[in-house]
């Protein structure tokens, strides 16, 4: 019995630590982009290739992260609602049915920030610590 309690405690502690290690994710766009907030569903649709334009008609260029950073894990769980394998399979189906290409993936968050800073239609998600004056963080609002 004592062993079971110990194992449960380890699991609970591990879970709490994992949560505390989660990143604060910032969704960023080009500083000249007039967008101030974005609905969670719109963000999901952007990364699933189903929303291609901002409200002002500018074409959206989504940026992904190639590494399994804390920001990416958090973003995928919170916004995309797919695990890595399901997301990859989704895009394999999209590519081979001629529906589009997945977001370009960057090796580091710094590269993603630089990309957004130099492309007006770009959007990305990074750890909030990586923000700088060259990009603008926008608010993610709940779907109505």
């Amino acid at each position: 019995m004592r062993k079971i309690v110990f194992i449960l405690a380890i699991f609970l502690l591990g879970g709490a630590l994992a949560r505390s290690a989660s990143a604060e994710v910032a969704v960023i766009v080009h500083k000249d982009n007039p967008v101030k907030s974005i609905a969670r569903l719109d963000l999901e649709l952007i990364y699933l290739g189903k929303k291609k334009m901002f409200e002002n008609g500018d074409v959206i260029i989504p940026a992904d992260l190639a590494n399994e950073s804390a920001a990416r894990t958090e973003f995928f769980a919170d916004v995309i609602h797919k695990d890595e394998d399901s997301y990859r399979l989704y895009w394999v189906r999209m590519i081979f049915s001629g529906k589009g290409q997945p977001p370009v993936a960057f090796r580091s968050e710094e590269e993603a920030v630089r990309f957004v800073a130099t492309h007006k239609g770009a959007i990305a998600f990074v750890d909030a610590d990586k923000l700088n004056g060259e990009v603008k963080a926008i608010k993610v609002v709940e779907d109505e």
Binding site: L89, V92, R93, F96, S97, G98
Partner: peptide, 17 residues
């Protein structure tokens, strides 16, 4: 184009998908 019918036709021969 592969006819957009059902779940599979646009993936007709794409076996990895």
């Amino acid at each position: 184009a592969l006819t957009p019918f059902g779940y599979y036709n646009e993936l007709h021969d794409a076996t990895p998908a």
